[in-house]
Write a protein that binds this DNA or RNA. Structure first.
Lengths: 166, 166
DNA sequence: GTGAGGTACCTCACCGCTAAGGCATTGCTA
DNA sequence: TAGCAATGCCTTAGCGGTGAGGTACCTCAC
């Protein structure tokens, strides 16, 4: 039972016997797992004509509180991307007729983004497939250990400043 | 004690009460944590005039078995990137005098990549800082729980086909 | 009311990666 | 040993993101 990171750690142990490289055991795996999982999720998105960035926008709108109209700034924070990235994602989604941009009525600088009927239908169709893919990827761990894992990741996130907006 | 993903899960629970979105609790956190950690590591790399891709190449060469000469294909697999990405990384590193490319003596198609003295010195200088950053990022979990976390990530990796070459 | 600083969104140049494909060489198989 | 698939590396077009900066608008102290 050994993954690629075990091999890497062995190499370091052979080359730098004194060095404590144990953090690489966590962060190296985090990185590799992220890549593999992203690739897996991408296949599901593609099957629905989407990519991760587009799905993220649509799903954020779908789960938002009524009336489901968000500012680009909120989408930016939810997706952890820059404002430029949000602008471009919205450009693409708007061009496909999946979202609309409306001037904010109470703030002349602002914009409100909303799902169109088509956008809503698409994300609602993709969502169960997406969840199934996520579940499949995690299935080797039982539900209990998935929760344990989520708990540890949450601790790390909080220590790095990823707080809830609630 | 709640991170951004808790907020997201609450939103889903409010909007789709029947839906089991628990996989998002793991994969959403994996994704956000990856982003935050990468940003943190990038600061250390930058302080040494490097980025993650360049460091990855240099560190892979450093930890490789003597005589520390690897083929681009091996670097490609170690870094989980395409051959094009490796070619470009090597172009940049070679232009800076940090690695050399030599034709493989026994395979006319092949190339051997090697650290220069300067490249070796740079990665040896960056390595302890990098490890310190990784350790700092993980420090909220004690060593024991770090190992636990690494174990769960390894199980996931193995289930997705990330096997050791040993 | 006004000016300064903050905020919201967009624009654009640049960057690194992917995906597809090309060329040379090697290895397998009949 | 000839033919053909596989391999190793490179090339290139295109894509999505960042970071810096611009414009318009809002807020607030005075």
């Amino acid at each position: 039972m050994a993954d690629h990171v075990d091999f890497v750690l062995e190499q370091w142990a052979a080359r730098r016997p004194g060095l404590d490289v144990s953090p690489m055991g966590v962060i190296g795996r985090l990185s590799r797992l992220h890549r593999l999982v992203e690739a897996e999720l991408a296949r599901t998105f593609k099957a629905h004509g989407l990519d991760a960035g587009s799905f993220n926008i649509l799903a954020t709108l779908l789960r938002s509180a009524p009336p489901h109209r968000l500012a680009p700034t909120e989408l930016m924070r939810a997706g952890m991307v820059t404002s430029g990235a949000v602008t471009q994602r919205l450009d693409r989604l708007e061009a496909r007729g999946l979202v609309t941009r409306t001037p904010d009525e109470t703030d002349g600088r602002g914009v409100r983004v909303e799902l169109t009927g088509e956008g809503r239908a698409l994300v609602e169709k993709a969502l169960p497939d997406h969840l199934a893919t996520e579940q499949r990827v995690l299935s080797v761990l039982g539900r209990e250990r998935q929760d344990e894992l989520a708990g540890m990741l949450r601790e790390l996130l909080e220590s790095l400043g990823d707080r809830s907006e609630g």
